[in-house]
Simulated scan of single mutants.
Amino acid sequence: MEGQPDAEPGAAEQMHNQREAVEDGWMLWQGGQVRNTLHLVSAVAQWILLLACLIYLGIDFLQPSTTQSDKVLWTHIRYTGRSTRGVAMNLTAELGPMQIRNGSIVIPCDGLYLVSLKSFIYLEEEDWLKLTLQGTHKTSSSTLWEQIVQSSDSTVNLTTVLYLFRQDSITLWTNSNANISDLSFSLVLISPLYCNPNSN
Results as ranks from 00 to 15, higher is better:
residue 141 S to E: 08
residue 52 A to C: 13
residue 84 T to F: 06
residue 163 Y to S: 05
residue 147 Q to P: 02
residue 188 V to C: 14
residue 64 P to L: 10
residue 186 S to Y: 13
residue 164 L to Y: 00
residue 36 N to D: 04
residue 10 G to I: 11
residue 86 G to D: 08
residue 190 I to T: 11
residue 140 S to M: 15
residue 95 L to Y: 11
residue 5 P to K: 07
residue 5 P to D: 08
residue 45 A to H: 14
residue 129 L to P: 00
residue 27 M to T: 10
residue 91 L to E: 02
residue 173 W to F: 14
residue 131 L to V: 07
residue 164 L to K: 02
residue 35 R to K: 06
residue 58 G to V: 10
residue 106 V to I: 14
residue 160 T to G: 01
residue 117 L to A: 02
residue 5 P to R: 10
residue 41 V to F: 03
residue 96 G to M: 11
residue 71 K to Y: 09
residue 23 E to I: 01
residue 137 H to N: 07
residue 77 I to P: 05
residue 1 M to H: 15
residue 6 D to F: 15
residue 44 V to L: 13
residue 150 Q to Y: 04
residue 153 D to W: 00
residue 22 V to M: 05
residue 49 L to N: 10
residue 174 T to C: 02
residue 37 T to N: 14
residue 36 N to G: 03
residue 157 N to V: 12
residue 15 M to D: 13
residue 95 L to S: 13
residue 19 R to P: 00
residue 145 W to C: 08
residue 24 D to M: 07
residue 196 N to S: 15
residue 171 T to D: 09
residue 117 L to I: 07
residue 198 N to I: 05
residue 1 M to K: 14
residue 187 L to W: 14
residue 117 L to R: 00
residue 166 R to K: 15
residue 169 S to G: 07
residue 126 E to S: 08
residue 169 S to Y: 07
residue 180 I to P: 03
residue 145 W to G: 02
residue 182 D to H: 09
residue 51 L to P: 01
residue 64 P to Y: 04
residue 23 E to P: 02
residue 148 I to E: 11
residue 74 W to E: 11
residue 9 P to T: 15
residue 172 L to H: 06
residue 88 A to S: 08
residue 193 L to D: 11
residue 27 M to R: 13
residue 76 H to T: 07
residue 24 D to C: 08
residue 22 V to L: 09
residue 70 D to C: 12
residue 179 N to G: 02
residue 130 K to N: 04
residue 129 L to C: 15
residue 40 L to R: 05
residue 127 D to F: 14
residue 197 P to F: 04
residue 98 M to V: 14
residue 150 Q to E: 01
residue 16 H to Q: 11
residue 7 A to Q: 13
